[in-house]
Computed example of a mutant assay.
Amino acid sequence: MRLVQIAQHADDLARATAFYADLLGVPPTASFDPPGLVFFDLDGVRLLLEQGAPSATLYLAVDDVVGTVDRLRARGEVVESDPHVIFEHQDDTLGPAGTAEWQAFVRDPEGNLVGLVEHRAGAAG
């Protein structure tokens, strides 16, 4: 079994689409209006933006969590939690062994929480 799609609430599809296109660095894969659906491809998993969807917390892998948060903050996006180490991976159970997992949290323009995750080699410091 594999994950196929995640739905995310969006009252203002244009605003949410602009945010996710900027964050993900890619345009939407497909849009259907009506009924008001926007899709992004997240490495084979569809992200659906839709007014009728409930809010979800998305965790997205980024190459540079500090740089991503700085860029979003400069654009006026809400940063809920600055980058910090969550834990260090001793084995490959939840992430690459020998890496520190850094996370930060931002709000999309619709108020949904988005986690940004970076795995950094070496010690947490």
Rank of each mutant, 00 (worst) to 15 (best):
R2I: 13
R2F: 06
L3D: 09
L3V: 15
L3G: 13
V4N: 14
I6L: 15
A10K: 15
A10R: 10
D11A: 15
D12W: 11
R15W: 02
T17K: 10
T17F: 07
F19T: 00
Y20F: 03
Y20K: 00
A21D: 06
D22C: 08
D22M: 09
L23W: 00
V26F: 01
T29N: 05
T29M: 09
D33S: 07
D33R: 15
P35Q: 03
G36A: 08
G36R: 05
F39Q: 08
G44R: 04
G44M: 07
L47Q: 02
L48K: 07
S55G: 08
L58V: 12
L58A: 12
A61T: 13
D64P: 10
V65A: 02
V66G: 02
V66W: 11
T68Q: 10
V69D: 01
R71D: 10
R73M: 03
R75P: 00
G76I: 06
D82I: 13
D82V: 08
H84R: 05
H84F: 08
I86D: 15
I86C: 03
I86F: 12
Q90P: 14
D91V: 11
D91G: 09
G95S: 07
T99F: 03
W102H: 15
Q103Y: 12
Q103P: 03
A104Q: 00
F105S: 03
R107N: 10
G111Q: 00
L113A: 04
R120W: 00
A124I: 05
